[in-house]
Design a protein around this nucleic acid. Structure first.
Lengths: 194, 194
DNA sequence: AAATAAAACGGAGAGTGTCTCCGTAAAAAT
DNA sequence: ATTTTTACGGAGACACTCTCCGTTTTATTT
């Protein structure tokens, strides 16, 4: 038997399909970053040189496209978690990651609305990305709890929620400052009762 | 001279105009609360029994309508601030108001996106409402600072930003719990350095 | 109580975005 | 080379936004 283990023979995926998919992602990322999440998808399709049908076949909903676009960004966040955890003391790692998170999200206004459904809503979108992010902050918080510098009953998701909030609002002139201050407040507020 | 002091005579406002305005607000509030901020405005007009033109004449943009709808809610928040400040110790007043805020906003998913532009964006919408809210939290924080239970360099707007975040995310099954925990964290994190 | 003027109405319709359907074209398998 | 499977793409049905302007209603004047 020469075919791979995975069930039915299933032929080789078409080359143009893959090309189109990549091209759409590329254009979409650019457009999202430039003009926010409400751009016209038909426009994106046009710019990518494909028909609307093609776009919608690859990404049935706007959210699906958003998630696909930001999958790599999410991956980077997850990776940063590992690096910080290795090279910094627990609380500092947590702080650094939180700041990075805000930075990342704020830099691209885009994701915020979508992120809401991630941390909160019953929506099943962002399943995998969500898991990665949740995993990262969970790990960081766990470590900080073990070190005794964070209250043991802290729910990591609470922090995440607050961060999403900060990011959502990240636009005013001093958002960077504000974000820094808020992260500080959150960390201080998460220490064990004195 | 029989005319009022305010400049040009200006005739009495038309009765139907006022009636329509009220009716639109009523329907819009209901619709927003039921289905979020993205409902069709033409539908609202239809339900209110007026033409689209009428709706848009009264409220040129979606945001204008949103603000008008929630002006009263905002007023209630401002009022609550006064009551809490009179009847509770500083920090408790602050906590109570923060929880009320989350509650209010979360109960109507609606405002959240609009609120973002309030706390953050350069948008000039929500001018008056924004001022009221900012005034309220400013007063509460000031009092708590004077009492020595809150760090003097705390920016009230930072708290507000975090609250908006929490509200944005308020949807999961345990949002009420989460909100409570977060408010607690924020307050703890805002105490003077030990 | 008309007549007049001002203000508001309302809905048709132009412009734009979403998303589907299906005849056509391209790629893989044979 | 032929067949079969997969994907393409854009026309078009539907929805929403917002404006324009002829008509109607209301307030004022006589």
């Amino acid at each position: 038997m020469k075919k791979k283990s995975t069930r039915p023979p299933s032929r080789k995926p078409r080359a143009d399909a893959l090309r189109n998919r990549e091209r759409i992602l590329e254009i979409a990322k650019e457009a999202f970053t430039r003009s926010g999440a409400n751009i016209s998808l038909d426009d994106v399709a046009k710019q990518a040189g494909v028909g609307a049908g093609t776009l919608y076949r690859h990404f049935p909903t706007r959210d699906a496209l958003l998630e696909a676009v930001y999958r790599t960004e999410v991956a980077k966040l997850a990776e940063a978690e590992r690096k910080f955890a290795e090279t910094m003391p627990p609380v500092e790692a947590l702080r650094a990651w939180m700041l990075l998170f805000v930075d990342y999200i704020a830099a691209k206004q885009i994701i915020a609305p979508a992120l809401n459904t991630l941390v909160g809503g019953p929506s099943k979108l962002f399943e995998s990305s969500g898991a990665q992010i949740k995993g990262a902050i969970h790990a960081l918080v766990s470590r900080a709890i073990k070190s005794g510098e964070i209250r043991p009953d802290l729910d990591p998701l609470d922090l995440l929620r607050a961060l999403v909030g900060v990011s959502n609002v990240a636009s005013g002139p001093d958002w960077a400052q504000s974000a820094r201050r808020l992260v500080q407040i959150l960390i201080l507020g998460s220490r064990p009762a004195s």
